[in-house]
Amino acid sequence: MPDSRSLPAPGHGRSGPRIARLVPGLLTAAAAVAAAFLVHGLLPALPAMTLAVVLGVLAANLPGAGTWTGGRARPGLDFAGKHLMRGGIVLLGLKVSVMDVLGLGWVSLVLMVGVVAASFGGTYAISRLFRLPPVTSLLVATGFSICGASAIGAMAAVRRIRHAETVLPVALVTLCGTLAIGVLPLLAQPLGLTATVFGAWTGASVHDVGQVVATAQTAGTAALAVAVVVKLTRVLLLAPVAALAGAHHRNGVRALGAEDGVVKKMPPLVPLFVLGFVAMVALRSTGWLSAGWLDVGATLQDILLGAALFGLGSAVRIRTLLHTGGPALLAALASWLLIAVLGLAAAFLIAG
């Protein structure tokens, strides 16, 4: 009979310590998400997801808080930034209705595909011009051209990019998306934009869904309605872009294996969470879900993405960013300007 002293106590097997290590960080992320929602409720112009990133950055750089987020809370915050992000991406699909997207018309759909392709290629080229690493350039291009931090998380998972390398791209896409909230409404009147054109411009050029809503609502409900549909058309392109990136990565792994004479384990062509996103889009498009269930899904998605973004933000050290992020910031601002110009041109054609 085995000695009872050698047996693990109930609840303290291998998985027990691992889960216990995650608890401090996950509780911290939950508190931060609650704070972000509270501030958003008081100041609706500030998107909750943007606030989550900002709170994460503050937590990483304030005395005392930085020790906590970089110490005991780090495992749970890293878990949130990686795994809760994927859950949020799946639920993001519940916001996309294929019927609404098709309602834009084929010309508008072709235009949006062109804008995303040009934004992706142009942003990647600008990033490389400023000597950013290929991985950083890829993530920045993905986030800026599709749907912000969610797209960065999806691309990182598909290409097996380390969690730490997503921190700078998320910070840049959040900064530029926040910049758009303040700048685009100021340009509407000087440019003589109608509400419809402004809404289409916002949807075609602002990164995160929450930032699109915050920007477009300044011009009224008509602008907001157009902005959301145009933006969700870009979000829908997340699935094919992720699939193409996955196929390219598999080919690279296969080629390396052939050179080394070793059979390497192949990554999935399309990760499960991307398939989950597509499934949620299909479910939303059937019209079977009531408004109540869609509201529940949207709330849960915000909670998961908010926790993930806080986790990513809590890894940003401002001192390090200032020392090493100058070229990255210039590249991001140049990319933001490019996408704003491309989006404005498309908006005139969509709403014209």
Rank of each mutant, 00 (worst) to 15 (best):
T218C: 11
L172R: 00
V209K: 00
V213G: 03
F198M: 09
G192T: 05
G192M: 10
L187W: 02
L175H: 06
F198R: 06
A188R: 12
Q189E: 15
A223E: 10
L193K: 02
C176D: 08
G210N: 05
V206I: 11
L175I: 12
A204W: 01
G220F: 11
G177H: 07
T202Q: 08
E165K: 13
A195R: 08
V173L: 05
Q217H: 12
Q211A: 09
P185G: 06
V173G: 03
V170Q: 00
V212H: 05
Q211R: 09
G192Y: 11
A216L: 11
V173F: 07
A222F: 13
L168I: 14
A180T: 10
Q189Y: 09
V206E: 01
L175G: 14
Q217R: 15
D208V: 00
L193A: 03
L175E: 06
T218R: 14
V213M: 13
L168N: 11
T178Y: 03
L186I: 04
T178E: 08
L193M: 14
A188C: 07
L186Q: 12
G210K: 04
A171D: 04
T215V: 08
G220M: 14
Q217F: 15
G177F: 04
G182T: 13
V209F: 09
Q189W: 14
A195D: 12
L191K: 07
T218N: 12
H207Y: 11
G203N: 09
L186S: 14
A204S: 13
G182P: 08
S205D: 07
V206A: 02
L186K: 12
Q189F: 07
